[in-house]
Computed example of a mutant assay.
Amino acid sequence: MIDEYAWRGGREAMLRFGPGSGPVVVVVLPLFEEANRLRASIVAMCRRLADAGIASLLPDVPGQGESLTLLQDCTLADMRAGLAAAARVAAMTHGPIHAVSIRSGVLLDTFALPERRWSFAPQPGSDLLRQLRRIDRAATLNAGAPVRELPARTTQTVTIAGNVIGRTLLDALEAADGLDAPSHGGRVVRLTGDARAADRHVEGTALWRRSEPDIDLPLVALLADDIKAWVVSCAG
Rank of each mutant, 00 (worst) to 15 (best):
Y5W: 11
G9Y: 10
M14Q: 10
M14Y: 07
M14T: 13
F17A: 04
F17H: 11
G22Q: 03
P23Q: 06
V25A: 11
V27C: 08
V28G: 00
L29D: 00
P30I: 14
P30K: 12
L31W: 05
F32P: 06
F32K: 03
F32D: 00
E34D: 15
R39Y: 06
R39E: 14
R39I: 02
A44I: 08
A44V: 09
M45A: 12
R47I: 03
L49F: 09
A50T: 01
A52F: 00
I54D: 01
I54M: 11
V61P: 01
P62E: 07
E66F: 09
T69G: 02
L70P: 04
L70H: 12
L71I: 06
Q72F: 07
D73W: 10
C74K: 02
T75G: 09
L76A: 00
L76Q: 00
L76I: 05
R80L: 02
R80W: 10
A81I: 03
L83K: 04
A84D: 07
A87W: 01
V89K: 11
A91Q: 03
M92G: 10
T93E: 06
P96K: 10
H98Y: 04
I102Q: 13
L108A: 09
L108H: 01
D109K: 05
F111N: 05
A112D: 06
L113A: 14
F120P: 03
A121Y: 04
A121K: 09
A121D: 04
A121I: 02
P122T: 11
Q123D: 10
P124R: 10
G125N: 09
L128C: 03
L129V: 14
R130K: 15
Q131R: 15
Q131V: 09
L132W: 05
L132Q: 05
D136Q: 14
R137V: 13
A138K: 10
N142S: 07
N142E: 12
N142Q: 15
A143S: 12
G144L: 05
G144I: 15
E149T: 14
T154G: 07
T157M: 06
T159G: 02
A161W: 07
A161C: 10
N163F: 12
V164W: 01
G166S: 14
T168N: 13
T168V: 15
T168K: 13
L170D: 07
L170K: 01
D171L: 06
A172C: 02
E174D: 08
D177K: 02
L179N: 14
D180A: 13
D180G: 04
D180I: 14
A181K: 14
G185A: 12
R187A: 03
V188G: 07
V189T: 13
R190I: 14
R190N: 09
L191E: 10
G193T: 02
D199L: 08
R200S: 11
E203P: 07
G204H: 08
L207N: 05
L207D: 04
L207E: 09
P213L: 11
I215H: 06
I215K: 09
D216H: 10
D216S: 01
D216I: 00
L223D: 05
A229R: 15
W230E: 01
V232L: 10
V232Y: 04
S233P: 13
S233G: 03
